[in-house]
């Protein structure tokens, strides 16, 4: 081995040892700095992506109109075009009204945020949202979406947050099967890719009276999540020798997670 390569190897081993022995607080600071650096790119990219999508949709629409142009009168097409645009506005209006209504109906003090990015393919189920410490959001704060609980904040930087989705194994929630005394800890599953997400509910009684279709809600125990937030419905219950395990279908549609609501109950800023 050349001396220079040997020196490089020694330096590399020292570097790796330093990184592996970093405290969790230091790692979180590094990750905060990383997300703060990436925030302008993420926001910029999200805006470009939205424009590109709109542009492609416009192209698609104009192709449709072109086909119709051969069959019907020009005036009729114009009217159809106007009608299409009105419908689009109507849908957008309805969506915004639903979001507003959701926010108004919620008993909790919530802050609306937009999901600007789902993380690319790895083993972690996370997303980036466009609100951060500047909106008094800190780590561990619960996040809800139309349908129920969606996850919690992991790393909060100045303008963005990384959230752990409920479908990740590391997002654990204390829950209860509604209408029964059964409580347990629920978390995401691994190994389901390109399929509908499922959640696993553990620590249930060995032979609990749990039937498919029963609602699962948060208990509020443990101090992480408020009580009575909907999680999903039981799909399957399996009694075991020590404890029962249930498969739960989440009530939130994680494939179309556009707007989420951060529960502003904790204001801790990280170090």
């Amino acid at each position: 081995m050349k001396p220079i390569n040997f020196i490089a190897l020694v330096l590399f081993i020292c570097g790796v040892t330093w990184v592996l022995t970093l405290s969790e607080r230091s790692v979180r600071r590094i990750q905060q700095a990383y997300y703060a650096t990436m925030a302008p790119f993420l926001k910029g990219g999200s805006s470009i992506e939205t424009r590109a999508r709109n542009f492609l949709e416009e192209i698609e629409h104009s192709k449709d109109l072109e086909n119709q142009l051969r069959a019907i009168e020009e005036e009729y097409i114009k009217l159809r075009s106007i009608e299409g645009r009105l419908r689009e506005l109507e849908t957008e209006n309805a969506e915004l009204r639903r979001a507003l209504e959701f926010k108004e109906k919620s008993r909790l003090n919530v802050i609306a945020a937009r999901v600007i990015k789902r993380q690319p393919a790895t083993w972690w189920e996370t997303a980036i949202i466009d609100k951060g410490q500047s909106d008094s959001i800190g780590a561990g704060v619960p996040i809800i979406a139309p349908g129920g609980l969606a996850g919690k904040v992991d790393i909060a930087s100045e303008d963005t947050c990384s959230m752990i989705l409920l479908t990740d194994e590391r997002c654990q929630v204390s829950v209860q099967v509604a209408g029964t005394p059964e409580v347990g800890i629920l978390h995401g599953t691994r190994g389901r890719y390109g399929e509908e997400p499922r959640l696993i509910l553990r620590h249930l009684s060995r032979e609990a009276a749990i039937l498919p279709g029963m609602k699962v809600i948060t208990t509020g125990k443990g101090g992480l999540f408020p009580s009575n937030l909907l999680i999903g419905t039981v799909k399957e219950y399996t009694p075991g020798p020590v404890e029962g395990v249930a498969l739960v279908q989440p009530s939130v549609n994680f494939d179309e997670l556009g707007v989420v609501f951060i529960i502003a109950q904790k204001n801790e800023h990280e170090g």
């Binding site: 969790e24 607080r25 790692v27 979180r28 590094i30 990750q31 990383y34 990436m38 993380q119 790895t122 972690w124 996370t126 800190g138 780590a139 561990g140 992991d154 790393i155 752990i164 990740d168 590391r170 654990q172 204390s174 800890i185 125990k221 443990g222 101090g223 992480l224 904790k266 801790e268 990280e270």
Partner: peptide, 23 residues
């Protein structure tokens, strides 16, 4: 820095009697 999920500080990790797995 982008992917690893670091455990939350103890004060934000919830009651250890309920959440016994540190995550």
């Amino acid at each position: 820095a982008q992917h690893v999920i670091t455990p939350l500080p103890p004060e934000l990790a919830g009651n250890p009697e309920v959440y016994d797995d540190p995550g």
